[in-house]
Design a protein around this nucleic acid. Structure first.
Lengths: 332, 332
DNA sequence: TTGTAGGCGTTATCAA
DNA sequence: TTGATAACGCCTACAA
């Protein structure tokens, strides 16, 4: 309990407890194989010296970092926080820490200071990629630890993937609109290259083709409130009776844009979103949307990473989605 | 470029380049002090071997982790994501990584496996605490790295603090309501022990006391949409003409609750929030609120931590706030 | 069940 | 400007 100038090392504890450093080490890593007597002595000495394990030494010796890196396209975007919470939860139970890197904030290509430096076994024991726009070559180096892609994905990146059933979600949403009698349906999509946008467009096409239809228009947004609002003029010009939006934020933004133009939802135009963010139920008109369980998605990603690290083959998990009917879509 | 079974070490590079390991090390940490000739040779050997620096070795040698830990009360809460983005940005420029820990997910007291184990120089080079409810004793150990508190705070925790001017924000909000002629003002507050709630209550009191008034009631919420909605009945019972809410989520939740009860905002009741989350402008009635710049708050916290680490004295920064007038509050 | 001793990969000191 | 070498703190054969 004294306040030593130098933090106590495993050696100090050993001396004080009258045992060897190996025994002290074992008390920390595998207590069951040391005798009760030695263990008690060590525990007492630990308390007396205020010793805490120096993780740096252990990590070097074991060639492991004790942390997993999550690559997020935009850390300020609340969409990802719930996924991160799910990841964090599973990692914690496995004794691993969560490192977070915002891919916008880091040079994607520089060989010396860029992202490449992080994709290294000495930086993280594994990587969870939430950004589908990164160069797959980054992950193909033999120095790169196990990788799992979650939510967005990219062909060419090795390892397991965990995704919501995006196509099915979009199909459900559009089928719902069709069942309500809508025929002029517009798709307010995400960025064109984005893997989510692509899958959801497939679902839209699948649903519409049953009726021999196509979207009256596809407008490209940026998954943001603002881009939804700004799409209002183009949406109105296409005269749809209903709009399927690739996420809730664009749907809520569009709601505002339509209101500014004097159009009512769902009176003039029906709206369906995607994600079921918490705010969807509190939008000006409670939003009908597709629920995807973001915490579960994060948990699954972490679990896949752990089993991949343990040598299990990488599989791909597709998580079910479901339609959440509220008040923003009604019969034509 | 070959694919060695064992990752190349600094030794391999040195041999290949015909120099000593010390020189190779210097090329990485301080290139200017090595001759052009040696440097070129090393760079060539690095490329040929595919060598990447093993951070574990460096960290042990330098007794540093290369990462800062952020303690977040609830990682799934979008309020914190923008703060984290600000933190991450500044850390990155300083060559530090961001570790995130959800304090809900971790045992707060267990001496062997709890939070205490993380507050250790071998785990992180510094700590940014966004949770005001943690036991201050945790941070008082000599083994604990530098600490900065941000947003919420706790007397007894050492180190710098960075806060929004919560009292002033609340004062501005209530003064605005008073100027609109409101006299029956209710305070929908956060949890009673929360430091934010306390400061904001002071601001409310300060503004009201100028008119010799007090809140018609103080209702305790949980900073969530749901708690705002659930407060509606109690709010209505107190018959205020205006409500100041400790955050935007509760204000938007309350808006929904009031609408369900057939009351209109701002027709029947005026509302002011706090935070200016992005959704505030897209609420059923665009929300008048107090803007606090969360990204800047995170940046400042990280900067304070860095300067504290470099031995500068710890100061406390109070960040300005400003009133954002929209449409949820109007004259009585 | 315990102890001894070598090594994980790097950097910093010191001398050349 | 460079090289040899001793740490950094811990874990784990291996031997006792």
């Amino acid at each position: 309990m004294s306040s030593p100038s130098r933090p106590p090392k495993i050696h100090d504890v050993a001396k004080r407890a009258g045992v060897s450093v190996a025994t002290v080490s074992r008390v920390f890593s595998n207590p069951d194989i040391v005798s009760e007597k030695s263990r008690k002595a060590v525990e007492k000495a630990v308390l007396e010296t205020g010793y805490t394990l120096n993780v740096l030494g252990r990590n070097l010796r074991q060639s492991q970092v004790g942390a997993v890196l999550a690559l997020v396209p935009n850390l300020a975007n609340p969409f990802f926080s719930e996924i991160l919470a799910g990841i964090s939860e599973v990692l914690r139970d496995a004794g691993l820490n969560l490192l977070v890197l915002d891919t916008r904030q880091v040079d994607r290509s520089s060989p010396t200071h860029g992202l490449r430096n992080y994709l290294n076994r000495s930086h993280a024991d594994g990587i969870i990629v939430l950004d589908g726009s990164l160069d797959p070559a980054l992950f193909q180096s033999p120095a790169c630890p196990p990788v799992v892609q979650a939510c967005e994905w990219n062909e060419g990146v090795p390892g397991a993937r965990v995704l919501a059933d995006n196509a099915e979600g979009a199909r459900l949403a559009v089928a719902h609109l069709l069942a309500l009698g809508h025929r002029r349906i517009l798709h307010l999509a995400g960025p064109r290259q984005n893997s989510l946008s692509v899958s959801r467009a497939e679902g839209v096409a699948a649903a519409l083709s049953c009726e021999g239809l196509e979207p009256v228009a596809v407008i490209e947004g940026a998954f943001t409130l603002r881009s939804g609002r700004e799409a209002a003029a183009a949406v109105i010009a296409a005269r749809p009776t209903a709009v399927f939006c690739d996420n809730d934020e664009m749907a809520i933004g569009l709601m505002a844009g339509l209101a500014e133009a004097g159009l009512s939802v769902p009176g003039d135009i029906s709206l369906v979103g995607f994600d079921n963010i918490e705010m969807a139920a509190y939008a000006p008109v409670p939003l009908t949307t597709v629920r995807q369980r973001r915490a579960v998605l994060g948990q699954e990603a972490a679990r896949l990473l752990l089993s991949q690290r343990d040598g299990d083959p990488s599989e791909t998990r597709v998580l079910p989605v479901e339609l959440c009917i509220r008040q923003s879509a009604r019969p034509v």
